[in-house]
């Protein structure tokens, strides 16, 4: 019944945008199998007639008036950016420009 997680690790790591070292992957495969084996025990329970809980206190959706309000000033928004240029966050190229 145990899930062999070693085949899933690369796929899930890519989905999560996580670079893992080979040793990390190996260790994690075993640990995740153990954890998921325990977690999967909840599948024994019959929940066919049960609604999921998201907020534990019953309350209506909270809305505020649709009015503009001042937001943080730009210098504060940008103060933690590791790379920036003028009023922008700077990132590496997103679209490849060289044909190959």
């Amino acid at each position: 019944m145990a899930i062999d997680f070693s085949r899933e690790v690369d796929y899930v790591a890519r989905l999560a945008r996580l670079t893992l070292e080979p040793a990390e992957k190996e260790r994690m495969a075993g640990q995740l199998s153990d954890i998921l084996d325990t977690a999967r025990r909840i599948q024994e329970l019959d929940t066919s007639a049960v609604e999921p809980t998201s907020h534990v206190v019953d309350m209506p959706a909270v809305l505020r008036d649709d009015q503009t309000r001042p937001s943080l000033i730009l210098s504060r928004v940008l103060q933690n950016a590791p790379r920036r240029q003028k009023e922008y966050f700077r990132v590496p190229s997103i679209i490849r420009t060289d044909p190959d």
Partner: peptide, 21 residues
């Protein structure tokens, strides 16, 4: 991108993944 550690990388996905890894 907006805050925190940045590991660098030559395209956006390798930067995301290396930064988080």
């Amino acid at each position: 991108v907006r805050y925190g550690y940045n590991h660098g990388g030559d395209n956006i996905e390798t930067m995301f993944s290396a930064t988080r890894g």
